[in-house]
């Protein structure tokens, strides 16, 4: 039989986290619902709008729906595409006969831990259309025409997608490598005895057994991709222009930050955050449905 103080002790020990989580996690999140119902500027609430901010964003706002479209495109070509590179890479790096596997792992992971300021500097030099080495290669090696990477609306999205892929392929590779470690080697040996080729082995053993990890990594990518901000922000000159020509670089999270911290509409910005939250929740749920079905 536990006495009274023993009964409460676990809660007491757990309380520091929960108190901090309540104050810095739950409260601000809940409070932002309140803010999203107001016209809210630097000096606080100005007038009650009800769901007006939400309705306006989804109907008359000239940028929000377009920014969602940009976000989806970048989600597909930036955040999701990288899994098609990361899984084969992980399998290659996991190969025991590969020499120097550790240094490759480190190299692929390096972009993920590099400071975004450094990345911004390097990429804006790389994408510079007069002197950047990307255009230098296109012109001198392939004999093509210079691409205005940060000005042409289509090229802007490619530039951002390239940067996102470069940054996160290594991170996903590491996640998949961890998943590969847990696959029983005897399955591969059995398949070999049955005469399965390398590709077949991976299609029929690796991919199905990796599904839970794929779900996890894709979920993280969806969440990260829907919140994509840093890359377009540094490439498209911050809040100075609305994400470049045709707003091609304006993702929803970028628009959210601009609306709040540059244009001073914290209510509207909170409403954007909640719409994004619902979309992310929905997409993660769909992702779960699909992986569950595949696992069966």
């Amino acid at each position: 039989m536990l006495n009274r103080s023993q009964k409460w002790a676990p809660y007491l020990f757990l309380s520091p986290f929960f108190i901090l989580f309540l104050v810095f996690g739950v409260f601000p999140i809940g409070y932002s619902i309140t803010i999203s119902l107001f016209k809210w500027t630097v000096s606080g609430p100005q007038e009650f709008r009800g769901i007006g901010n939400y309705v306006k964003l989804l109907t008359t706002d000239p940028f929000f729906v377009g920014s969602l479209w940009t976000t989806f495109l970048l989600l597909i070509f930036g955040s999701l595409l990288q899994h098609f590179f990361a899984i084969p890479l992980a399998i290659l790096l996991n190969n025991k006969s590969l020499k120097g596997g550790d240094s490759f792992r480190l190299l692929y992971f390096l972009p993920y831990i590099t400071s975004s300021v450094v990345i911004a500097l390097i990429f804006s030099q790389m994408f510079d259309h007069n002197y950047g080495w990307l255009n230098y290669i296109i012109e001198n090696v392939f004999g093509g025409e210079k691409v205005k990477w940060l000005q042409d609306p289509r090229a802007i999205r490619s530039s951002i997608a390239i940067m996102v892929n470069w940054r996160f392929i290594g991170w996903n590779t590491i996640i998949y490598m961890a998943g590969l470690q847990s696959i029983d080697q005897s399955l591969y040996e059995a398949a070999e005895i049955d005469g399965a080729s390398g590709l077949r082995k991976h299609l029929h053993i690796t991919v199905p057994l990796l599904l839970p990890i794929i779900f996890f990594a894709v979920s993280l990518s969806i969440i990260g991709g829907m919140q994509l901000f840093e890359e377009p922000f540094v490439l498209m000159r911050g809040y100075e222009q609305m994400g470049g020509p045709n707003n091609a670089g304006l993702t929803s999270a970028y628009y959210l930050l601009a609306t709040g911290f540059s244009f001073n509409r914290f209510g509207k910005a909170s409403a954007i955050a909640w719409i994004l939250f619902v979309i992310i929740l929905g997409m993660t749920w769909i992702n779960k449905m699909v992986t569950d079905k595949l696992q069966k």
Partner: peptide
């Protein structure tokens, strides 16, 4: 006006529209 930041961003985009598009 309180809208100057957003108007400036929109007009900067108009400038790039003319220059790039």
């Amino acid at each position: 006006s309180e809208y100057d930041a957003v108007v400036l961003a929109i007009f900067n985009n108009a400038v790039t529209d003319v220059l790039v598009n």
